[in-house]
Design a protein around this nucleic acid. Structure first.
Lengths: 200, 200
DNA sequence: ATTTTTTTATACCGATCGGTATATAATTCG
DNA sequence: CGAATTATATACCGATCGGTATAAAAAAAT
């Protein structure tokens, strides 16, 4: 009932996601958003609440569509494949021809004013969540004898996430996919392809 | 001649550097700057030109004081020590108790509005310059037989810088020095401590 | 056809943004 | 002592920030 909405919410959210990804939370103005999404401010506020709400919905969409590979990777049976799929998945996402370079979870609000502190906190927690999920996967691998000798699951997880975050900066600085793949190759070199026979 | 300046320019610049480092270029307002530096806007503009000029002078100070280790590391005779000193130097700087976490060259303007595009470009070039300097050092090492087999100088340099940039994000997300050191240890594990006998 | 409901368009809000004009205060030079 | 010079303090500038009040437009329900 009532006047029908004249724009596609999902399409508008996709545009908002790309803007926040490319220019960050504070670097994207409401004018950028309304111009890009092709809607007016009252429409934006009616559907998404406010700028912060829109960003969080855009981030949720980013996780669901662009970071899908992450939780898929965790399902791989061998820890080294988990690590490699995550690193290549990040490199792919950070250098996709469609869409901005780098990572929305980092570009969004790395350093910012007090006004964006809450968004910054969400993104930090977001990164910690991913790192913790990976650490838990590696902890399982450790029980299975599927980790390289002399490494703690937490340390391995932090290492993989550190390299992934490094490639995000590289991508934002102009590095291409082939260059990031070579970084990934080097990052995994210490990890034998057949590290240990997994426990049966 | 004329009325003497009532503040220490170097001290004020140090404060500006810390503010830009912690909150980024766009996240730091002129009010933040003048309050922190303890001077008025006309004084700031009289000495530093404008906000952009102040940022660039603060960045120059950052390079000179906080990134001093980088060009010192390049002088090490062995490439692996160069790499290790750079990685640990970054980890140290990014987690110093005095001063903000992370790296000013990344926090400054990773993703931003068009208004900060020039600053963003300067920081990208800044990162490229460091990577190129390291690549040139590794190229010399290659001639000396001082690189691990099967690796190009450019790739090794990009890899080291990627890990350094990754630790910058980790530090900005709350990681401490000991954690980053363990990341560094893993990042260098593929690189034998005595890789190849250097040419005499 | 009229009422009700929802979305749209327009115009506006106070606050803050980076930057500056003006005048006064503090010094050196003559 | 002026006169000249430089730095300070105050008040202000237009533009933009995120956000909203108001009312017209477009649909469904009665």
């Amino acid at each position: 009932m009532g006047r029908p909405r004249e724009f596609d919410v999902d399409e508008a959210l996709e545009t908002a996601m790309e803007l926040f990804w490319r220019k960050g939370y504070e670097g994207t103005s409401l004018t950028d958003l309304t111009d890009g999404m092709g809607i007016t401010k009252p429409s934006l506020y009616g559907v998404f609440g406010n700028k912060e709400g829109l960003f969080l919905k855009a981030l949720e969409r980013y996780q669901r569509t662009k970071m899908y590979f992450f939780h898929e990777a965790l399902k791989e049976p061998r820890a080294r494949i988990v690590a490699e799929k995550i690193l290549r998945g990040f490199a792919d996402s950070q250098t996709a021809e469609t869409g901005p370079s780098g990572c929305m979870g980092i570009n969004g609000a790395l350093a910012c004013s007090e006004a964006a502190a809450e968004i910054q906190k969400c993104l930090v927690e977001n990164r910690h969540r991913g790192e913790r999920d990976l650490a838990e996967r590696f902890a399982r691998a450790a029980e299975e004898g599927d980790l390289p000798e002399g490494h703690e699951p937490d340390d391995l997880a932090r290492y993989i996430m550190t390299v992934s975050q490094g490639t995000a900066i590289q991508a934002a600085s102009g590095a291409n996919r082939a260059e990031l793949y070579r970084v990934v190759d080097m990052a995994l070199q210490f990890w034998p392809a057949e590290s240990v026979v997994p426990a049966q």
